[in-house]
Computed example of a mutant assay.
Amino acid sequence: MSDEIQPTVPADDAEPADRAARIAALRPCYRADLADGVERFFEPRRTTCPWCGSDQLVARLRTGDLLQHKPGDFGLDRCAECGHTFQNPRLNEAGLEFYYRDFYDGLGEQRMGGTFGGRTKMYRGRAEAMLRYDPTPKNWLDVGTGHGHFCEAAREVLPGTAFDGLDFTDGVALAEREGRVEHGFRGAFPDLAPDLAAHYDVVSMFHYLEHSTDPDRELRAAHEVVRPGGHLLIEVPDPESRYARLLGRWWLPWLQPQHLHFVPVANLRRRLTEVGFSVVGEQHAQPHDPVDLLAAVWLALDHAAPREDAPWLAEPPGAFRRALRSGVFLAGVPALVAGTLVDRFAVRPLSHWLRLSNAYRLVARRD
């Protein structure tokens, strides 16, 4: 869960027969889940900000699930006092299970594993961000490790460091089986923190905090697990990016309905200080992932095209709809190429100066 998603154009006609059979087998379960609608997946709507308690809330965005296309509408509100943006109403436990199901695990495991596995350069850059502050950490816990690809790549940067991973999905067990992490812990980080107290030189949270139901509790768990003098490394989407306004619902880091909280950097710096950390490093240009325009074009094409088969659809698409879907993406290839070129060669060198960076990174030392 620790990585942002990069879209890849699906090849519907190339889906293996076993995937179609798995989808057919799952369809009755999804049909039962949706029989009473999706309203049961949400908590009551909040009237105050979960970060500062203010009642000065304004609507920021409404969108659907633009990646899996599971049914449901999702809203993001922004606090006019502190700038915190959050999902409102928020998914409850049943909703989180429903919308995460078959995304990172199950049907989505192979696709997500391929997406995350090809990002070694980015993972190395994340590990290198710690060299200035602790070039020889003995052990490192990656919270929200997913399939453990960061730990595998980071070992090349820090060969003397033992990497463990923690996640609440099946991916962490896969990461341990594949040798990407030495120990894989499955469960909620705050619940596991007492057993790991003061055990790690470094704890990392790469694109994890925005998924959590209670970011403050996660930060306090990190303070418990990091040794005195050790470090916490956090990377999250930047809700103050100009792309967030310019691209609207097509800005990939909104990632509804999975992303529950978007914390402005000033808010996170203050909260880290309050829980017992000193912020020693802040980066904006380095964690920027140059995919915003490519992803926006892809999401728009995917939204316009007929759906590919999925178990939450009433029935699989026919040959005509599959052909039409392929045609939409084929027609969109020039726009996808243009988006890629602008992302990588025009925007990336100037992303921080133009305030277009889509993420920021903080390094904090436990006092």
Rank of each mutant, 00 (worst) to 15 (best):
E15P: 00
R22Q: 14
I23N: 02
I23M: 11
A24Q: 09
A25V: 00
P28L: 05
C29V: 15
R31K: 15
E39M: 05
E39R: 14
C49I: 00
C49F: 01
G53Q: 13
F74R: 00
G75P: 05
R78P: 08
C79V: 01
E81W: 05
G83Y: 02
Q87N: 11
N88W: 06
N92E: 08
Y104T: 04
E109G: 07
R111C: 02
M112T: 12
G114A: 14
R119C: 10
E128I: 01
P137L: 12
K138S: 13
K138P: 03
V143R: 08
V143I: 06
H147M: 10
H147Q: 09
H149N: 15
V157E: 11
T161M: 06
A162V: 15
L166K: 03
F168T: 02
R180F: 04
R180I: 12
G187R: 09
P190N: 10
A193F: 02
M205R: 07
Y208G: 05
L209I: 14
L209C: 09
H211A: 12
T213Y: 01
V225I: 04
L233C: 09
V236Y: 02
P239I: 01
S241V: 03
L247D: 00
R249F: 00
W250R: 12
F262I: 05
N267E: 05
T273I: 02
F277V: 13
G281S: 10
P287E: 07
D289M: 10
A295V: 01
A296C: 03
L299W: 01
A300N: 03
L301Q: 08
A304K: 06
P306F: 11
P311R: 13
W312C: 11
P316H: 07
P317W: 13
R321Y: 02
V333A: 09
P334E: 06
A335Y: 09
R344D: 08
V347S: 06
P349F: 03
L354H: 00
V363F: 03
A364T: 01
